[in-house]
Design a protein around this nucleic acid. Structure first.
Lengths: 327, 327
DNA sequence: CTCTTCTATGCAAACGTTTGCAAACATTAT
DNA sequence: ATAATGTTTGCAAACGTTTGCATAGAAGAG
């Protein structure tokens, strides 16, 4: 039987109210120092821990924030989780993690009893999702891609960065630049594909898509190898993300194709792994810390003021040129 | 204002009890089909979601399981999180994630209101920790390393696997085998170090430790390079984990040392990355899926029977020999 | 010495759900 | 028709906390 407020009250010879005021912190200043100390001492000794269910029931808040993630797979995702966890725990919240997958796995999208949701790279553009969130008045901030003008959002301008990246490939002399993408996420409006298309048109290049089955390294490696055998060798590849870039690099090596002399490579995300290949990969670095920080602040705002108008913040990533695209 | 049981009861012309029995599922069989259907329809229409705080208050259970992790850093950790999440959600639980760090960051070790804890690679051997858990009667299963005979545990026999790995290095002709480890986790009883020591003695090899500042690739790379310059080149390195092995590989490349001809390399964990280096790394594959599965089952047992005697399950990993240790 | 003001504490209701027990009703057996 | 049995529902208490309002006592003002 766990220690309760009532128990402590009896022990200290005061009422539960007084104990609650001290222990919840909300009315501690109203209580005389002597009583407060006594209560704190007893609580400590009896190893009191508040019953959060009871507390939530009356306050209406749970102290829980959900972190929704479309995928939990790469080192990049681990970093997102770690950063979010750090931020939220620092501010007194617990983090409930949910791997919700993509738009077709909607059975996973049920909202629990949380004070707010940080949705990282989730398909909130799907009407049935955000409308339900909206009806329930659940504070939610969408992070990363998949912008929806009805939901608070902090993202990264991957279009601009993508344009820079593809132009960069062109600038170092590439004339056949392919875009490596996975079959699944080839949704309309993907910023990186748009960037690729834009520059391809701007520089009068033919568009070549290398489509991998999924975002894994092996699928990317396979796709690249098959593509080269079938269509010959492009001289540059812009990759949807770093995982796929590493896969591409691997595939090229398998074929004995030199990076960057024969094929220049640029990835996206800025994960640490790209630095530890024999030929370090150029990439677009995402400002993750900043994104978490801003995401949290927006969620706070929304939680304290549900009627607030919808905001959107777009951060600037930066192109990091390494050996894989230097000539 | 969210829909409550009372509201539905009024709407359906029945008592809250009846609604509760239908909606909680616990007494649905007692209710007449007609009433049940009517209640379900109304609940659906009014988008009822139970108030978990109220429910927890009376049932005493929260539907929450905490996942404690010492680190959230690598792709390996992402995989652990993903597997645990999948298992728990499948069984109707939500996952609360907590990055608790190592033994010295005890301020993070406060137990929330959860039904149980899965502690992955956490220093539960520290008395103050597990004793508190024990007093609070919180069901907890320790996963991975750091075995404590007072706590349920599912682990991997890294000693046996480590012995196999180091013997393997010896078998392919290595006479100077070093152990690459990080300074922090050099705790007494580390299975891999013990394995290394065992085989070193068995085969009459000198023990050589390469100590990196931490588990990062860069620290490992640096440590290896400095060690080689100072003490010459061993012909085999057994690495604490794959991250460090990748760092070591990188460091050797920097020095122009060939893997595996000059130095053979074996890591530990079985992360996907090891497959995608120019020289794929030998490693010890951990049976993660199985560990999650077993961990969950043990936690279930403990949750339903707190008095149960302490169990420990040790799974067998397997040594995967790749190019980095083939001669 | 009385009246006011302030400080410290207690009372009791409320939060939304579950559940043991009792009661109402329907059904069947005698 | 009555009793016995089985099915379906309602009543009311309980879970542990918080908080608006009231009150008792202390301190200060007149």
């Amino acid at each position: 039987m766990r220690t309760t407020v009532r128990k402590i009250a009896e022990e200290a010879g005061v009422s539960p109210s007084t104990v609650s005021r001290v222990l919840s912190g909300r009315g501690a200043h109203l209580i005389s120092p002597a009583t407060r100390e006594r209560i704190l001492a007893i609580a400590e000794q009896l190893e009191y821990t508040p019953n959060t269910a009871a507390r939530s029931l009356v306050t209406g808040r749970t102290g829980l924030v959900a972190l929704w993630m479309a995928q939990i797979y790469t080192r990049f995702h681990a970093r997102v989780i770690q950063l979010v966890e750090e931020t939220l725990v620092y501010h007194g919240y617990d983090v409930l993690i949910r791997h919700i997958g993509f738009a077709h796995t909607q059975h996973r999208w049920n909202i629990g009893s949380v004070d707010g949701i940080l949705a990282y790279e989730c398909s909130l553009y799907v009407d049935s999702i955000w409308k339900r969130l909206h009806r329930r008045m659940v504070p939610v901030v969408s992070m990363g891609a998949y912008y929806n003008k009805n939901v608070d959002h902090v993202g990264v301008d991957l279009h601009t960065a993508g344009v820079q990246a593809v132009r960069h490939l062109s600038d170092v002399g590439c004339r056949r630049i392919a875009y490596l993408v996975n079959a699944e996420s080839n949704v309309a409006g993907d910023a990186r594909r748009d960037a690729y298309d834009t520059v391809a048109q701007e520089r009068g290049l033919l568009r070549e898509y290398i489509v991998a089955a999924d975002q894994s390294r092996s699928a990317s490696s396979d796709a690249v190898q098959q593509y080269l055998r079938e269509y010959g060798t492009p001289d540059g590849i812009f990759c949807h993300n770093d995982e796929m870039a590493i896969g591409a690099y691997h595939g090229l090596r398998q074929l004995g194709v030199h990076v960057p002399d024969e094929v220049a490579l640029v990835g996206c995300d800025g994960i640490e792994d790209t630095e530890y290949l024999d030929v370090p990969l150029s990439t677009i670095c995402q400002p993750l810390e900043e994104m978490c920080q801003v995401g949290w602040e927006m969620l706070c705002q929304r939680m304290s003021n549900p009627e607030r108008e919808v905001h959107s913040v777009i951060l600037q990533p930066r192109l990091l040129v390494r050996a894989s695209s230097m000539r």
